[in-house]
Structures are given as C-alpha cells and as structure tokens.
C-alpha cells in the first residue's frame, strides 16, 4: 500500500530563530488511515500542518505527501497541489462569511478546477446533493450567508467543501473545539464516515485525547517532534 505521508529527517526553523521548531526523524501514514494527532499548543503541530499543506517550506529532510516531494515543487505548484489533493478544515471560520454556504462550497470546487486546468465537472451536482444531504445540510441552510449559520452548521459546510473535490488527504486542525460534546461526537462520526466513503486519508489534530478512540491510529507530537522533546515539553503525559 502506498503512503499518504512519508517524512524523513524533516527540520523546520522559523526565520529569526536559531533552533528548529520542528524536527521529525521519521513518520509514515498509510493511505486510508484516520490518524489522530495529539499535541498541546506550542508543540509544533501548526507548523507541521502548514508544512503538510505546502504553505511553509522545510529547510532540510524529506517531505513526501501523496507521492509528491513537496520540497521539489514551487510555491505555486504546492498551492495547486493543495487545491487538487487536499481538504483543510480549521477550528472555526472556515467559510467566507459574506458568501452563501453554497457559494463557499463552489468556491472550493473552483479552486480545484483551476488547479486542474479544467471546468468544474458536470457530475459534481449529483455529488453535491448526496454529500450535503448526508451531512444534514438543508437547501435553506445552503442559501443562507455563511456568517448567519451556527458554528456546527458552518463546520459541516466546511466538511462538504473539503470532501466535494474528492481529496486524497483531509487535514483537520481542531475542527471540534468550538462545538459542544454532543455535536462534537456527531461531527467526528460524520467526517470519518464521509472520508471512508471517499477513500480519503484523515489527519485530525486535537489536544483532547478523549476523541482518539474513533480513529485507526494515534500519534502524539512529542513523540514525533524531537525538537519539542529537547525543549522540555515532553513530560506532559
């Protein structure tokens, strides 16, 4: 089975800092895995996610995502790669508040199509209806301005947008921290079910370890990031 993520001796140092924030000797994630990535704030997880998304560029080491060497791509190629292959879900504020929910979803498709150099596929309408229906998004919700929806609804719209272009990798950065526990569990179940249906690999980042049971594997930042260990942040658990 091919790897979704393959990292070897990766280091990243922010400009104007003398010590690396992130040092990962080795990390591999297989395709289709649902990984729970546990990390406290300051553990370098945001940096790692930015590297995986291709927004930041590492100084040394190997960073291979979905069989593409990100370090060998230009910034623009990495942006297109992200538009084509990845779905990103933040903690909150995933949507442009001044567009309707539907337009937000189409915006994602537009970027994907743009990166592919094609027009948005015609079978997308069908997928769109199935996906939004399975996420419990009604036509009324989709017509409303994203800013008017509740946080839970917004997060579901964000999942719909992330999944609609059939990405191979979904990166979710604390997507449930703004939700209450009931909505949180439902959200995770929905996300994982839809990801499984679309054969997408999921990297789910959270500081809340109680969520880990729904995932196929679990990894903690302080095991992954040897810089973090050196800085003495390891003795939390």
């Amino acid at each position: 089975m091919s790897l979704a993520i393959d990292i070897e001796n990766l280091t990243f140092t922010w400009p104007k800092q003398d010590k690396p924030t992130l040092t990962i000797p080795r990390w591999q994630v297989e395709r289709g895995e649902h990984v729970f990535l546990h990390g406290q704030s300051g553990s370098g997880k945001s940096t790692l996610l930015n590297l995986l998304c291709g927004v930041l560029e590492s100084q040394s080491g190997r960073l291979c995502v979905l069989n593409s060497e990100l370090n060998q791509l230009s910034a623009r190629q990495r942006d297109n790669f992200r538009a084509r292959e990845m779905g990103v879900i933040f903690q909150q504020f995933n949507l442009l508040p001044y567009l309707s929910a539907e337009e937000n979803i189409h915006l994602g498709q537009w970027f994907t199509a743009r990166a592919n150099g094609t027009n948005p596929a015609s079978d997308v309408d069908n997928d769109f209806e199935n996906l939004t229906a399975s996420l419990g998004l009604t036509a009324d919700m989709l017509k409303r301005q994203a800013g008017e929806l509740s946080v839970g609804q917004q997060q579901r719209v964000a999942v719909a947008r992330a999944l609609l272009s059939k990405p191979a990798l979904i990166i979710a950065d604390e997507p449930t921290s703004a939700l209450d526990s009931e909505h949180r569990d439902k959200f995770i179940a929905l996300l994982l079910a839809q990801s499984r249906a679309h054969h997408a690999t999921v990297i789910f980042v959270s500081h809340d370890r109680s969520l880990a049971s729904a995932f196929t594997s679990e990894v903690t930042m302080h095991k992954l990031n040897s810089s973090y260990i050196e800085q003495g942040g390891a003795d939390v658990s």
Binding site: C53, D79, R82, A83, V88, F93, N94, L107, R161
Partner: peptide, 9 residues
C-alpha cells in the same frame, strides 16, 4: 487564510 487553505496562491 481560508482562501489559502483552498489552494489560492
């Protein structure tokens, strides 16, 4: 940030 995440360069 949202636009960047969607793949905007």
């Amino acid at each position: 940030a949202v636009l960047r995440a969607l793949g905007a360069n």
